[in-house]
């Protein structure tokens, strides 16, 4: 398996009054043309890891790594021009909160077309047709209306799908999806996952799927990284999740509700200070 993305010892630090605080502390993984899930509790550094790969660590944060390579290109020393040619065309990210990641004064249509404008050579009409097809593909019932709508005129789930359409329309090689389906109902969620799945299996896209939903990740992804306090505590095949070694993963698994009744009272995750070191 040739690696699409290699991350070695990724660290992200934010300066604070008491010196820099590391929120991601030495994350290693490689990604082929597969589906990689990242799970972990809130604040464990999942989103920051995703952003750092795309060079979008918010200032004053600082991301460092021993190796950060996308398809043979060293991202640590990439020039702004290299970033421009990579982002959108070859790698992109569905951000966590659509309410904040859509420009409030631009119509959805214009925002989707922007990505095509930078990288495509097509005519306007062809671009528009592609954008409409993409909106339809993410199960938007009334693409014509949504195309002309402003973000505040959409529901949360519609915004999330518009965001997915915006990031997928340029058909990237690597997609980082940060909780892309958290605001969607189950039927639409399945549909969106199917689109992602098709892109991985047919076009050989690499997908990093960030989620809270352990069950979803275990059924949808090939491999799973479990993060805790800025570290990867466990990496395993999705099918082997039941055989997890680390007590944190085991705890998470135990907390999932089971159909045959299960334990009562519900187990509480006992955190151990030693996991964070």
């Amino acid at each position: 398996m040739n690696a699409l993305l290699t991350v070695k010892d990724l660290r992200i630090a934010f300066p604070s009054r008491n010196g820099p605080v590391e929120v991601v502390r030495g994350v290693n993984f490689t990604l082929g043309r597969e589906r990689l899930g990242i799970v972990g509790e809130s604040g464990s550094g999942k989103s920051q890891t995703g952003r750092a790969i795309l060079g979008l660590t918010p200032s004053p944060g600082l991301a460092t790594a021993k190796q950060l390579e996308f398809d043979g290109i060293d991202l640590r020393q990439a020039s702004p021009a290299t970033w421009r040619s990579l982002r959108g065309a070859r790698m992109s990210m569905v951000m966590q909160d659509p309410k904040f990641s859509l420009n409030p004064v631009m119509t959805i249509g214009r925002q989707i077309l922007e990505a095509l404008k930078f990288h495509g050579r097509e005519s306007r009409a062809a671009s528009k047709a592609r954008a409409m097809a993409m909106l339809e593909a993410v199960q938007i019932r009334d693409p014509e209306r949504v195309f002309r709508a402003y973000p505040h005129e959409l529901s949360g789930g519609m915004g999330q799908r518009a965001m997915i359409a915006m990031m997928l329309v340029s058909e990237p090689d690597l997609l980082i999806a940060d909780e892309p389906t958290s605001a969607l109902d189950v039927t639409v969620q399945i549909e969106v996952l199917r689109i992602l799945d098709n892109l991985v299996s047919e076009r050989g896209m690499g997908l990093i799927f960030i989620s809270h939903d352990l069950r979803l990740v275990s059924s949808f992804c090939d491999r799973v990284l479990v993060m805790y306090a800025g570290k990867v505590v466990e990496e395993l095949r999705a099918s082997d999740l039941a055989k997890a070694q680390h007590p944190y993963t085991q705890g998470l698994m135990n907390c999932l509700p089971k159909i045959e009744g299960g334990a009562r009272p519900l187990p509480v995750l006992q955190r151990d200070a030693a996991w964070a070191t």
């Binding site: 959108g88 990210m93 951000m95 859509l102 922007e114 965001m163 340029s170």
Partner: peptide, 11 residues
Amino acid sequence: DYINAARLQGA
């Protein structure tokens, strides 16, 4: 984030 999103599209 929407400015980041524009950056993500390669603007």
